[in-house]
Design a protein around this nucleic acid. Structure first.
Lengths: 368, 368
DNA sequence: GCGCATAAGTAATGCGCATAACCAGCACCC
DNA sequence: GGGTGCTGGTTATGCGCATTACTTATGCGC
């Protein structure tokens, strides 16, 4: 009586009076004629053998009662009692479902969802802006994620201090994308280095000896990795290396001109490599310049792209290069997170990219 | 002492021994020399004026202590105490993030996410297959959703009995897509009827009098609505109606041939309307047949599509028709759900579609 | 001096659950 | 016949917080 008055007052019922609210274990227990603890023992269903302390019949009675009441765990209570709730968080600082379908996060999410489903986790999407009603993302916006067993972070604008805090507190966190600066932060990233090296090796195997990388002038880890892979590839294959091998452009579209390409080709360069960027500017500029210079690809010069082709490039030749395995990245992130949640110590940061033969690379042209 | 042993044992730290886990209000209280309740009062910071029961100085002491310890609320505890958890569920029986980016659910989700974020809800994605570890979707798979304050359902394969159960229990549920058969189930759908009528009106205004609808041979509510709208449109505009106005094809690609189109045109038909389907088969078949019949669109015949163009149709003319406002649908669903959760009684089922002028409809051709 | 109001804060309680600690019953064996 | 071990439970407790009821201190009017 006292009990029910309490619940009626604070209850989560849908307003309309005599509504039954979510059942709790106590109610299941009553229906099954056992104690709440028994219900907990049955429903926690530790599959690890330790469960054998409840008899077959009692267990069944409890299960029946639970089903008939539509019982479901309260994740908050579960969490509070310091156990798992099979919830993985996904926190992104852009909208989690970006309006633009081409948005680069989307494929990650596909992988995340598949892997999470496969492992029996549900996903909680923490929407960047909502800080639990208070509106804008306050300094404790991140602390909402502690509801889940662990959390995946997307995007590079994740506030350092807060993330650090989570990590320091031992909350399982995985960042999607390389993130070395933050001590102790687990992350999952694509192995751009190996992939880039492989692309160079491919070109070298075709016979190219002078290869130039066109990259933008920023210092994202992904860009740095690609450059390093490119250079290592040159060294390994005995191709011509040196500072001239990398063209660092603030604005590829204007800096990579037909004349420049012509000059380089005249100078012996037989292949160009562009890094992938958000906009695909490097590749686009290169492609345009080559065409404008009257050069045939892959007849006269070979081109390669260190990454996936921009989606709107459907028309042209498929670039030689590699594909970033975004699905796998998402899946790997979930695996890593799941391991952290389980308390294991894992080490699986890099995911291999798949080489794409494409149609823009061939044997070196015989222009002088 | 007893206390600290306990915490060391059960703590959520990641193994590494002497890790201090994050502070709780009791510790802040101790540091500030007040009681836990006071800390709670200060930190809950009810902005609604009711907070004035703590003195300025004490408040400041607490805030300082909290800051210096890096205190953050434990959301689980908070939710446990506060009853509502600001979580909305999204349950879909296909993968929620379908691998195919063009999947029709995706745009819904965009709207859902935006609206949820705007209202301070986080989303829980119930992954169809994971029934909390048990694997395949058991009969109580749906009961997991009770974890959230309410749940949105996508897809037409939602098990009747279970859904009914949720509804009967007063659990806030909204179905995305018309769903009249289930008594008491709230749903949100597009107003295909009005939209289809408007398309017919547009054609009629251009001068068409004999218009034929090509639809597939199923009985989805969406298809039925479109057909009804089409027929009502014919009646309203005084265009020629009757059974011959609707071509119901099990396999449009093979049934809508060039000859057939030619015959209909010869018979006086000046416009064709296709319903939108998953595959876009009806429109595609119609388009191909018209082309193959050597007819010009919109010169000789006008075409219209009752729905959004298939995304891979970028090449051709933009079909005259309407756009399903998927974003808005998602948003409306969230609004409705939020209202149900709040205990309000709402009634906002239909969302209007936007007319798209397109380029495939013009004045009737003058062929005999 | 008393009654009463207000301010400022504290103790107690419970949210729903997991779990440690305990207990009853029974079989078994020196 | 009293220890010992196992099965099948139950009671009690606390996770971290919000909230309610209660206490104490202080001021005010008369």
């Amino acid at each position: 009586m006292e009990q029910s008055r309490k619940r009626a007052k604070r209850g989560r019922n849908t307003g309309s009076a005599g509504r039954t609210s979510r059942p709790r274990q106590a109610e299941v227990a009553q229906l099954a004629g056992v104690s709440q603890a028994t219900v907990s023992l049955v429903l926690s269903a530790r599959t690890d053998g330790k469960a054998a302390t409840i008899s077959k019949e009692t267990r069944q009675r409890v299960l029946d009662a639970a089903r008939s009441l539509g019982y479901a765990h309260d994740p908050a209570a579960r969490r509070l009692a310091a156990v798992r709730n099979n919830l993985l968080g996904v926190f992104s600082f852009t909208a989690t479902f970006p309006t633009d379908v081409q948005h680069s996060y989307y494929p990650f999410l596909v992988g995340v969802e598949q892997e999470a489903a496969a492992r029996g986790f549900d996903l909680v999407l923490f929407t960047g802006s909502s800080s639990g009603g208070a509106g804008a993302a306050g300094p404790d916006a991140l602390s909402r994620v502690r509801l889940a067993d662990g959390c995946l972070f997307l995007g590079r604008h994740v506030p350092r201090a807060e993330l650090k805090r989570l990590v320091a507190d031992g909350f399982p966190v995985v960042h999607l994308g390389r993130r070395d600066e933050l001590e102790g932060l687990a992350w999952v990233g694509a192995d751009y280095l190996s992939a880039s090296r492989a692309v160079v090796a491919h070109l070298a195997a075709l016979g190219h000896r002078r290869i130039v990388l066109v990259r933008e002038d920023d210092d994202a880890p992904a860009s740095a990795d690609r450059e390093r892979g490119f250079l290592e590839g040159l060294e390994e294959t005995g191709a011509e290396t040196g500072p001239a091998a990398v063209l660092r452009c603030a604005d590829p579209v204007h800096e990579v001109t037909a004349e420049r390409v012509r000059a380089l080709v005249a100078d012996g360069v037989t292949a160009f490599v562009a890094e992938e960027t958000d906009t695909g500017a490097a590749w686009r500029a290169l492609d345009a310049a080559v065409r404008e210079a009257g050069l045939d690809c892959p007849g006269d010069v070979s081109l390669a792209l260190l990454g996936s082709p921009p989606p709107d490039l459907a028309g042209g030749l498929v670039p030689t290069g590699f594909d970033v395995p975004r699905h796998q990245l998402g899946a790997a992130a979930v695996r890593l997170l799941a391991a952290l949640v389980a308390g294991e110590q894992v080490h699986e940061p890099l995911v291999a990219c798949e080489f794409r033969t494409g149609a823009t690379a061939g044997p070196p042209g015989r222009r002088p």
